[in-house]
Every structure is written in C-alpha cells, then in structure tokens.
Amino acid sequence: MNAPTYNFAYLDEQTKRMIRRAILKAIAIPGYQVPFASREMPMPYGWGTGGVQVTAAILGPVDKLKVIDQGSDDTTNAISIRKFFEKTAGVAVTTSTGEATVIQTRHRIPEATLQAHQVLVYQVPIPEPLRFLEPRETETRRMHALGEYGLIHVKLYEDIARFGHIATAYAYPVKVNARYVMDPSPTPKFDNPKMNNSAALQLFGAGREKRIYAIPPYTSVVSLDFEDHPFEPYKHKACCALCNAEDSYLDEIVTDNKGSRMFVCSDTDYCETRQSDGHRGSENAAPYAESANA
C-alpha cells in the first residue's frame, strides 16, 4: 500500500510555491482575488481550508501560531486547526494575541491592536462581495476589472429604502486602497474599522472558491456607505459580564430556561487578559425581554 507520509506543514513544496506566488500577487494588488489551485485538505471545504493553506504556506519554525474561531481559541474548529499545525509543522502555539506572529481567524478580528510583526489569516467562505447580487463569476470579474460597483450600491440603497438602514450586519463590503470592493469574510461589521490602516499584514484564503486576497499593512479600507447614511459599526449597549469591557464585541449567552441573558466578550484572550489585570464584571445574567431591550 502507498503508506501516506506528509511534508512540513502538510502541503507539498510545489503546492506551497503556487500559494506563495498567489500571496505575493495578492499583496501587490490589494483587495483583488487571485485564483489559486486550492488543494483538497484533510478537513472539509468550508471549514477553513483556504486559511489553512495560506497559513501552511507562510508558517515557519520561528512562528508562534494562534487560531481563533468566533474570537475564541477554545471553539472546536479552532482547536482542530491548531492541533493540525502542531502535529504537521511542530510549530509553537499560543492563545495570546500579543505573542502570536501568525493568527488564523474565522469570523473575528482580535480586539487588541495588531502589530507590524503579525500576520492575520482569515478563513473565507465566499470571497466575492458581488456574489449574492450576481452569481456569475464571468460577470463579477468584469465588474471588478472595470471598477463598476453600481450594483452593490443599489443593493445597499434598497436596504435603506426598505428598512431605513443598510441591512448587512456581517461580511459588510469594503473598498480597499480606493479600488477593489472586497468581502472582509463574515466578520461582524463591528470589526471593519480594524482593517483600515492596520500595521499587520492581512491575508484571506478561500479554499473551496479557490481565491486568495490581501490587505497590505497601512492600506485604506473603507466600509461602503452613503453620505446621508454613514457606516456605523454595531455594538451592544452592554458591557462584558466577566471583565466589564465596554469596547469589545459581545456574545449573548442564554443562561436558563426563562431566557435570562448574559453578555461576554467574544474575544476570549482579550477577556482573560483583562480579568487577570483585575477587571471584574457583574457576572450577572439578567432576565431579558425583546421589547424592553431592543
């Protein structure tokens, strides 16, 4: 039998070269989706194969890797991916945002400001920001080529006409370096401002859709909006029940059968760091009624 043996960081060198070339072009053309010959990875498509391939292509023995899903190091998929790299690359791992050199994420940007020596790798399900307006790749590619983004503005404006607001709460489209409209992956729009002018390099990998794109450090990233309806990041009117943070994105936890709710930081490292610095929240869950608290 052809007994399987695997390379450092799983991918074979030819695959890494192909991904590395795509990453370089992605950095040179900020926000443009570079097609790449995504491989079948040993985890399912849609579970972070794009992010995993990007991470595998950049990771080295001196790196410290952090993996988060929904802001947490402890969710099952984050653990599974972290274990994968521990096993295949023998790389050091950490849960500390500050200590990490490479952070792979699904759906969140850490609360702590990222630094110049760090790379943030996003897992992306649908990289095409125009996909739900125009399902055809041939069409969306033409729109990007011409910088023709009327369609997405029409969609956002229709929201305003219908709901009084832009009804996009996550994967909120941005314009990168005043040229390409880009999907930030399904991060909450709360996180959008963190992408702008970041000191860290941001790489995006979409495995199933076979695209890699990037935001270089210190690059303008503007959330699409209108003069009379400016972009506003959503935030709970609450603070974290564990660390009392007022500036973090919160998860809502249902604590009993009566529907009591508690709000806690989605970024577990941020929350734990604050707690160890002596910050304490109310630790209370309060009964919650939609009408009263909406």
């Binding site: 390379n7 450092f8 960081a9 060198e13 890494k16 070269r17 590395r20 990453i23 370089l24 950095i27 040179a28 292509a57 950049i58 990771l59 080295g60 023995p61 110049a116 390099l201 990037a214 270089p216 450090p217």
Partner: peptide, 19 residues
C-alpha cells in the same frame, strides 16, 4: 534544507512586498 530555506526566503519576499 529546501523546505525551511524556501519558507524563510518566502517570508522575506512577502515582508518586502508587504512593506
């Protein structure tokens, strides 16, 4: 060492391209 030297060279090129 092909694998590790390629990785470290790539990171230098990537950093150069990103900065």
């Amino acid at each position: 060492d092909k694998v590790l030297a390629a990785q470290s060279t790539f990171r230098s090129v990537m950093d150069a391209m990103a900065r």
